[in-house]
């Protein structure tokens, strides 16, 4: 032992320190190598095309900011809460998009929260079974589900046929191509995106905390309000952010189920591209992207990134 201790002092010891440093660095490089293929793929096939598309806003057809001009020149007004707000047609589409995304988010939260609560309260094995019912629609194509809603809601759809057959209506209800149909279709698609983060956070809440609150004199309503609800807020924030941002970019569902007034931004972009107005389409896409990033920044600023994407760990 004495000889060994002696050896490690002086030059040999420095050599050993250097060797450990070398090992550590090699370990770090290993992680970089693991990330590399995915990063290269994303840059080549996603990052570059998106950047190429978005930059067209500044040079197609000619260099300059003229692609953004239509967005700032007001032409019409919009009624909101009894106020007449001057707003041009394009801004209006953004406004409708935000409105739809907000309604979809709020209703998804109201529907999804009790489901997630129930799932998190039953045993893990039963929750996994019930989770399949949340996930089956999630695994079904959005297009298929939107067509299914058309079958249900159409003039000669199942609902109207049933109402007429039962003699409750003499003529069919207009359900398809309305805002209601857009909400139904979108909420249906978005519910799993709300339920999954809510469930993950709620599962992490220590049930002993709820027992402790009861023991300390809190009736069930107070246990929920003071303990469970605050601890589930990170899930609420994550779910709302996910659903809201995904809703902003919705295309197929509003296109199939919505009416002429229910135009969302992505439909407008598609329209511009099909008219070969690449520059204006890119400008709209850029504004939508900035809007989404802005909302994300607002969420994380108000709630803190850790609260949005962290768990309810104690």
């Amino acid at each position: 032992m004495a000889a060994l201790t002696h050896d490690l002092q002086g030059a040999d010891r420095e050599g050993q320190v250097a060797r450990f440093q070398h090992l550590r660095r090699r370990e770090q490089w290993r992680y970089v190598l693991l990330l590399l293929p995915a990063v290269v793929f994303l840059i080549a096939f996603y990052g570059y095309p998106v950047a190429a598309m978005l930059t067209r806003a500044f040079y197609d057809p000619v260099p300059g900011l003229q692609n953004f001009e239509p967005l700032v020149t007001a032409r019409s007004t919009v009624e909101f809460l009894g106020l007449s707000i001057p707003m041009n047609a394009y801004i209006r589409v953004f406004w409708i998009t935000l409105q739809i995304a907000a309604v979809v988010t709020i209703v998804s939260l109201l529907l999804g929260y009790p489901v997630a609560y129930a799932l998190s309260s039953v045993s893990a094995s039963r929750a996994n079974l019930l989770m399949i019912f949340v996930l089956i629609p999630f695994w079904t194509s959005i297009l298929v589900r939107s067509y299914a809603w058309m079958v249900l809601l159409g003039k000669e759809g199942i609902i109207n046929e049933a109402l007429l057959a039962a003699g409750l209506r003499t003529e069919p209800l207009v359900l398809l191509n309305t805002r209601l149909a857009v909400y139904l279709g979108m909420i249906h698609i978005m519910l799993p995106f709300m339920i999954l983060p809510l469930y993950a956070v709620m599962r992490g809440i220590d049930r002993n905390l709820l027992r402790a609150a009861g023991n300390l004199g809190a009736p069930p309503s107070a246990v929920f309000r003071r303990i469970f609800l605050p601890l589930s807020l990170p899930g609420v924030a994550a779910g709302c952010l996910l659903v809201f941002i995904l809703s902003l970019g919705f295309y197929i569902t509003p296109a199939l189920l919505g009416g002429q007034k229910d135009v969302m931004v992505s439909m407008l972009i598609q329209q511009q591209i099909s008219l070969l107005k690449w520059g204006f389409g890119a400008a709209l896409a850029l504004v939508l992207l900035i809007l989404a990033l802005g909302i994300y920044a607002l969420f994380t600023r108000v709630l803190g990134v850790e609260r949005v994407f962290g768990s309810a760990r104690t």
């Binding site: 002993n208 905390l209 004199g217």
Partner: peptide, 18 residues
Amino acid sequence: PPYRRNIGMVFQNYALFP
């Protein structure tokens, strides 16, 4: 029900509200 019993309890993992 527990909340009407007025019995104090110290839990194994303390169950302090985080």
